[in-house]
Amino acid sequence: MEVRTIKVFTTVDNINLHTQVVDMSMTYGQQFGPTYLDGADVTKIKPHNSHEGKTFYVLPNDDTLRVEAFEYYHTTDPSFLGRYMSALNHTKKWKYPQVNGLTSIKWADNNCYLATALLTLQQIELKFNPPALQDAYYRARAGEAANFCALILAYCNKTVGELGDVRETMSYLFQHANLDSCKRVLNVVCKTCGQQQTTLKGVEAVMYMGTLSYEQFKKGVQIPCTCGKQATKYLVQQESPFVMMSAPPAQYELKHGTFTCASEYTGNYQCGHYKHITSKETLYCIDGALLTKSSEYKGPITDVFYKENSYTTTIK
């Protein structure tokens, strides 16, 4: 009895394709271990004539594949690729409408935090270190965002349907971005203890939790000093293409032309909904596939993004 075979390709990165001759009487799992086709788990399936010449994702289970996976995804987590594939199996079914010149995501599976993050990423200057993220990001900007969303979920250790947080998501993504040249110098002034300067680099240099107003941050924000008295913390120097200011959701007025974009969060910790506000020729609110415009805006804002380049204080 002759062994019926077909020729397929296996890959971990969709760049390096490895030619395989597979036995049609055995499952993919018996031949390769966990195997995925377009995100779908085909591990328990036997090869079919229609699979001839198709590319299958496999887990990096030998040295060659491990090197290829690390170079593309910059992670050695053995569960990463499987999590990416199972997320992709959902995100490829989502709709990605162009809204006001940006790629958004039609609401499904509690994905409003991903839509808000995706919209924000198209408006701030950011370059990702893992080629996987950078490639998928370019495709997302062009309207094909399924891979990018699935990668975000995998890097953030999230599953489809789980509630997510924009600030946490951005923080994970910033860790995989090139923020080497970003720098922030802060000064804390206390009447009792004097003053202390701190220099922050990388992710810490672009994120701040405690106030939404970048102007206020430049002037000074009140913080408790270690001595128990009130101290003032203010920005001395900022070198970065953008800054992200966050605070627990509270009524906040966004003035046209003073910011790049913002995240609105309605609801409580267990259950809520994100919308995205962007400042173009007027203010726009993007909620999944829905767009509304207004000249002014007041609502429960939790993150505001500002364009920056270089700032030095005039406070002496």
Rank of each mutant, 00 (worst) to 15 (best):
V206C: 04
H90R: 11
L186A: 05
I15M: 09
L118I: 07
Y274K: 04
K95R: 07
Y234K: 08
Y155I: 10
K7E: 14
M207K: 06
Y72E: 06
F70W: 08
S279F: 00
F242H: 00
T64M: 10
E281G: 05
L173V: 07
Q270F: 15
P130V: 08
Y138I: 14
C112G: 08
E281W: 00
E264H: 05
S310P: 08
H48A: 14
G53S: 11
N49D: 14
Q134D: 09
R141N: 07
L37G: 07
Y57S: 07
F217H: 01
Q197P: 05
T120E: 05
G267V: 15
E125M: 08
Y138T: 14
K93D: 12
Q216D: 13
K92G: 07
M244D: 00
V203R: 12
E204L: 09
K93C: 10
S263W: 07
N110V: 00
P300A: 08
Y234F: 09
G288H: 07
Q196L: 09
Y269F: 15
M170C: 04
F148E: 02
H51M: 10
K92E: 06
E281T: 07
M244A: 06
E281D: 15
G101T: 06
Y265M: 00
Y274T: 01
E281S: 09
K127M: 10
T43R: 11
A108D: 09
R83W: 07
F242W: 10
Y84V: 04
L121K: 03
Q31W: 13
Q251V: 13
K92T: 11
S50Y: 13
R66H: 11
D109F: 03
V22H: 06
Y84E: 02
V304R: 01
K158M: 01
I15R: 11
Y208F: 15
N110K: 03
G53P: 05
A140N: 00
V3P: 14
L151N: 05
V42A: 10
M24I: 12
G101R: 04
Q123P: 04
K218F: 02
G194V: 03
Q222G: 06
H176M: 08
Q98K: 12
V99W: 11
D165S: 15
L102P: 00
Q237V: 11
A289V: 11
P241F: 02
L119K: 00
T278N: 06
I286D: 00
D303E: 04
L153K: 00
S294L: 15
P224T: 14
Y137I: 05
T312C: 07
Y84C: 04
